[in-house]
Design a protein around this nucleic acid. Structure first.
Length: 831
RNA sequence: GCCCUUGUGGCGGAAUCGGUAGACGCGUUGGACUUAAAAUCCAAUCGGGGUCAACCCUCGGUGCCAGUUCAAGUCUGGCCAAGGGCACCA
């Protein structure tokens, strides 16, 4: 065996060998139980960054550990390869985005292989290839036929820099998720997926996801935003044209209905013109024009002073028989509820602010009996008892919600209503590099989906990428022109492509049957492999990708394509990779290039280090010294083997008799196996796993050192071999190349990665002696050595016989003695 | 404003059930080896005090304030701070 550790040479050799042997092929048919480990697939941006390295290493170690434990493990990889960066790069070069994407995929594939990841590359999936997006289009058509894909004119989010619309989920603080540009509202006719049909199931089924963190689940629950309330319809008493009209409002506070003093409709409210009197018309028009000019950020800012103008008309409150005025104000949102709000300034802070500014009357209807408030300085929003509310006076407001809504139901002017904040998913994009929406417009037949046998609708190649201000796809002289799938007449194709999040909403299903040319996947195979047992990725997808994927899975279940409700059984959201306290990013200039680490230290060091310092869910602070430390540790392990090479055998026997000389190391190994297995099984605590590698290594060194220059007899060699081979097997999921190399050096015929996981003996996985802690009144006063098997009585006697304890308890009353088995004796004394 | 997460040495972080706080590592300091350096190895490393050193003893210490308990990083109540999410959503 070589004296030095040369990772670059070792790693390259094994990577080649694994590839030749097709070492990570996953059969669909196996007697073993299945395990599906998945990382969120990357966008092929050019090069791997440390976040990728962390993500894929975590999943790879899980996959290898589960394989060693006897599972048939599916661990695939693919590319989320449609999207704007490729198109922008193409526009800069005047070339096709496909070439740029292919180059990046080739380079990043090379990097993934250098990291030693155990992917079954035969299942590789690339979303921008026709054999994949054919099925994205096919799924679109299935959703369309079910009424879950539809086109409508709506106010949508428009990003001028990206030249396209965005989904609500892609607008972060009023800005584009990708380029940070402020988003504008536009009225456009666009394609949507009806995710709102699934709002209740998406919310309710969060309860099924025991393997997800609460943070992600609450983020999704907040985004879905369920609220229970009521719709009340208020008749208009003085409509200018004499028409019989009513204004419906949605409220979560039906209990405050007796306190209404005015009503607000959004500036975009559909009936607003009919509700405005001639004398108020100009002011209202001006106000609406101003509202249109405002950006979303200005409009939605909560600390802006509220403004509004009266419409001049009035509604009747059927509960009180009184009338109240109608206003328009931009704090009412047209997209939520009915676009109109009943205002109760005494019990809603926003209404209160508005009422103060415009001197609206205040009417208290909820009171805390112990501490009544007149609501002249702030709204009372806590619970209380109803006042000034006719027959409901004295009722608790929580009960009054139901009772008052019931009265409206009985009177025919209201109903119970559950409202969600979630909006439908806007999936059209006015861009080239995406899956074309497979729809045709025919003058006679209208909107017609493309025939399934004509899929895929291929992206045209005859386009001009140098155009500005419009989608390159519109420059194709051939693409738009087609024939109607129904009548055969001349027709036009849809020119929008799909949001890339559509492609990534089902890729994890395709891995189950990646090369199926007849279907997106066979039902038997998805039902066999799914749900994903462990999904690993960044928290930034808590809402976007994870919500969309859950929706897709549910919709596909309803389409009969698969049989489960949730795609991802367990979710690990890994923390960010930081350097010097902030996230690694090109703009901050604090990135570390994985290639450099591979070159200088090797992939095993990179893998070991990225797992070593923090638990996976927490942020990880990169330090060059830490990398160095991991590299030194691997050298130390290497020396341990090479220095003792002549004493090692793979034919060690586990059934040797335990003697006083050797039992401590054997016990240490069993404890390490147990501890490491538990740490991986329990939330993948790789940082403590790695500290246990070090402890075991230190223990073996100490054991060898204690032997000094003594000759090793057969039993010594047996024990040392057992310890060292256990160590490299335990390390194998992390240091995949080094363990394989040492295994081979020791005469291993097969790959160490085909070996079963180490077993431990519960009786050996504990020290032969325990340290008994003796406390007096809860403070540690002495530590004694005791036999592992000592009874509580024996421990108590031992403690009381300690000289030190005798001194401390002398002349005092022993009130109580508490014995914790195998651990501790606490003597409680008085005086 | 609401919701979620997290607060432990100089740093990253350990600590099944409430039972030795600070595992393991980084850093620092001292030493060995060496002509020297690198590498490697050994040792020390939470703070205050007991007149120095070793040893030992003692007090304090896990964001803050209370509480429960023989015993609290861990449980309960009330705060504070940081990070993240949502937000004129009626």
């Amino acid at each position: 065996m070589k004296q030095g550790y040369f990772p670059q040479e070792i790693e390259k050799r094994w990577q080649t060998k694994w590839e030749e042997n097709n070492a990570f092929f996953t059969p669909d048919d196996s007697d073993k139980p299945k395990y599906y480990a998945l990382s969120m697939f990357p966008y092929p941006s050019g090069k791997l960054h440390m976040g990728h390295v962390r993500n894929y290493t975590i999943t790879d170690v899980i996959a290898r550990f589960k394989k060693a434990q006897g599972y048939n493990v599916l661990h695939p990889m693919g590319w989320d390869s449609f999207g704007l960066p490729a198109e922008n790069a193409a526009m800069q070069r005047g070339a096709n985005p496909e070439a740029w994407t292919d180059e990046n995929i080739a380079y990043m594939t090379k990097q993934l292989k250098m990291l030693g990841l155990s992917y079954d590359w035969k299942r590789e999936v690339t979303t921008c290839k026709p054999d994949y997006y054919k099925w994205t289009q096919w799924l679109f058509i299935q959703l369309y036929k079910k009424g879950l894909a539809y086109k409508k004119e709506a106010a949508v989010n428009w990003c001028e820099t990206c030249g396209t619309v965005l989904a609500n989920e892609q607008v972060i603080d009023g800005k584009c998720w990708r380029c940070d540009n402020v988003v504008e509202k536009k009225y456009l006719s666009q394609w949507f997926f009806k995710i709102t049909d699934y709002a209740e199931r998406l919310l309710k089924d969060l309860d099924l996801l025991d393997g997800w963190g609460d943070n992600v689940k609450t983020m999704q629950a907040n985004w879905i935003g369920k609220s229970e309330g009521a719709i009340f319809r208020f008749p208009v008493v003085d409509a200018p044209n004499g028409e019989k009209m009513e204004v419906p409002v949605y409220t979560t506070r039906p209990d405050t209905v007796y306190g209404i003093t005015y009503l607000v409709v959004a500036p975009e409210y559909k009936d607003i013109e009919k509700l405005t009197t001639a004398e108020n018309k100009d002011a209202v028009e001006e106000y609406r024009a101003n509202a249109r000019k405002m950006t979303e950020i200005e409009r939605l800012s909560t600390d802006r002073v509220k403004t509004g103008v009266p419409l001049g008309t009035h509604c009747l409150n059927p509960f009180t028989g009184e009338t109240f005025p109608l206003w328009t104000a931009d704090y009412a949102l047209v997209e939520y509820g009915t676009g109109a709000v009943m205002a109760v300034p005494t019990h809603d802070t926003r209404d209160f602010d508005f009422a103060k500014k415009y001197n609206m009357p205040l009417k208290v209807v909820i009171e805390n009996p112990e501490n009544p408030s007149d609501c002249s300085t702030s709204a009372y929003v806590e619970e209380g008892v109803l006042v000034n509310s006719n027959e409901f006076n004295g009722m608790k407001n929580t009960e009054a919600k139901k009772a008052i809504t019931q009265k409206a139901v009985d009177g025919g002017f209201g109903e119970f209503k559950t409202q969600y904040r979630l909006r439908d998913w806007l999936i059209s994009r006015q861009r080239y590099w995406g899956a074309p929406i497979p729809v045709v417009y025919c003058d006679k037949c209208g909107i017609v989906p493309e025939k399934e046998e004509n899929l895929p609708v291929l992206l045209p190649k005859d386009v001009d990428f140098s155009v500005v201000g419009k989608s390159p796809i519109t420059t194709s002289p051939t693409f738009a022109e087609t024939t109607c799938p129904i009548c055969g007449a001349k027709a036009r194709r849809e020119l929008d492509t799909m949001d890339t999040f559509v492609c990534s909403s089902w890729y994890y299903l395709r891995f189950a049957d990646a090369n199926n040319a007849e279907l997106p996947f066979a039902k038997t195979l998805v039902d066999k492999w799914l749900p994903v047992d462990q999904y690993v990725g960044g928290i930034e997808h808590a809402i976007l990708h994870l919500l969309y994927s859950r929706f897709f899975t549910k919709a596909m279940k309803d389409l009969g394509l698969l049989s489960f409700d949730e795609p991802f059984k367990n979710l690990l959201t890994q923390g960010m990779v930081l350097k010097d306290g902030s996230k690694m990013s090109k703009s901050k200039g604090n990135t570390v290039d994985p290639d450099e680490i591979f070159e200088n230290y090797g992939a095993d060091t990179a893998r070991l280090f990225i797992l070593s310092d923090s638990p996976p869910a927490r942020d990880f602070d990169w330090s060059d010294a830490g990398v160095e430390g991991c590299y030194k540790f691997l050298n130390r392990v290497w020396r341990l083997v090479s220095d003792n090479f002549d004493k090692l055998t793979r034919d060690y026997k586990l059934s040797f008799p335990l003697t006083r000389e050797n039992d401590d190391l054997v016990r240490t190994v069993h404890m390490a196996i147990k501890g490491i297995t538990n740490d991986i099984s329990n939330d993948f605590q790789f940082n403590t796993v790695i500290s246990k590698y070090r402890e075991l290594t230190n223990a073996i060194y100490d054991w060898v050192g204690a032997r000094g220059k003594l000759e090793f007899n057969e039993e010594d060699k047996n024990v040392l071999s057992f310890a060292i081979i256990s160590l490299i097997k335990l390390m194998a999921p992390v240091t995949v190349h080094m363990s394989e190399e040492i295994w081979a050096e020791l005469g291993g015929k097969t790959s160490i990665h085909e070996e079963p996981w180490c077993d431990w003996d519960e009786n050996l996985a504990k020290a032969s002696k325990i340290t008994l802690v003796v406390q007096v009144n809860g403070k540690v006063k002495d530590k004694l050595e005791a036999d592992e098997g000592a009874s509580n009585d024996e421990l108590q006697t031992l403690a009381l016989e300690s000289e030190r304890i005798k001194e401390l308890t002398e002349g005092k009353d022993i009130v109580k003695i508490i014995v914790v088995p195998k651990k501790l004796v606490n003597i409680v004394v008085k005086g």
